[in-house]
Amino acid sequence: MYQIHVQGLTKSYRIAERQPGMVGAVKSLFHRTYRDVDALRGIDFDISRGEMVGYIGPNGAGKSTTIKILAGILVPTGGRCVVNGVVPWQSRISYVAQIGVVFGQRTQLWWDLPVVESFELLREIYKVPNNRFKTSLAELVELLDLSPLLDTPVRQLSLGQRVKCDIASALLHEPQILFLDEPTIGLDAVTKASVRGFIKEINRNRDVTVLLTTHDLGDIEALCRRVIVINDGICLSDSSIDELRNQYVHEKHVVIEFGNSPCLESIHQDDVLKSEGTRITFLCTSDISDFVAQMTSRYEIKDITIETPPIERVVTELYESSK
């Protein structure tokens, strides 16, 4: 039984078209024309309890739209979506009490309240028992290093500090599911690492299901065994990061450390990317095991490393190929 079930999900936004000029403005008083933007065009995926899934795609792909539907604040145009056995937007109030949502782009904390008072208010709103709240808060404060921020009004926090507080606030009521829309936006390298560590910890310790969108593929590599790629409202792929690599990038870099300077006449010079003495980097587009076998049979070899291409390249290629 899946915790999150999404099938054939579609969403089109209806936008009122404005005709240019004075005549257009007058016309549109009497007759509005609309244009439909298809943000989602049939998304399918299932997520089990405790999974941590990356949800990536270029700008405007439909990631935030999907998150809003899953969070119960947007109604799709078509398709099915069942989370924790309920349809999110149909039983919104009881449903949202069970989930945590962070939109990195905007805060859900109260602008003029000190962080700790925001947390107190959330305790009342989610009806968290006092002792549970205390332990939960203590854990979050420690993991995210929030204690210097607690008495600061939210409007005085820096972007990164605010995002950390937002993440903590989404977990105070111990939700089973966490939806994170760009949770590492605007974070410096150190904070990013600590937030990643935190998300990992929460996923492991509390068995929280996590679906996260990001433009930082480092997040995906650090956190997600599974990644769903969408573009233009459709799923391009749903697999592990390694599978994604193998599937979309058919070339690898093989670095070979030779015992002595090899005579390379027999090797196609085009395949040599870099040559530094006995250390030579080859571009391998054919079967990698054949290539390695061939080399080892001919030469004396000290060391072989096969470099996997950076995930950025994989994703760029994927986005490009879907255009």
Binding site: I73, V96, I125
Partner: peptide
């Protein structure tokens, strides 16, 4: 003014993330 901003911009939608009417 908070309320004006929330309703004018439509960002009042995000208040629906809370288990409140």
């Amino acid at each position: 003014p908070d309320m004006r901003a929330m309703f004018n911009s439509g960002s009042v939608a995000y208040d629906m993330l809370r288990p409140l009417s």
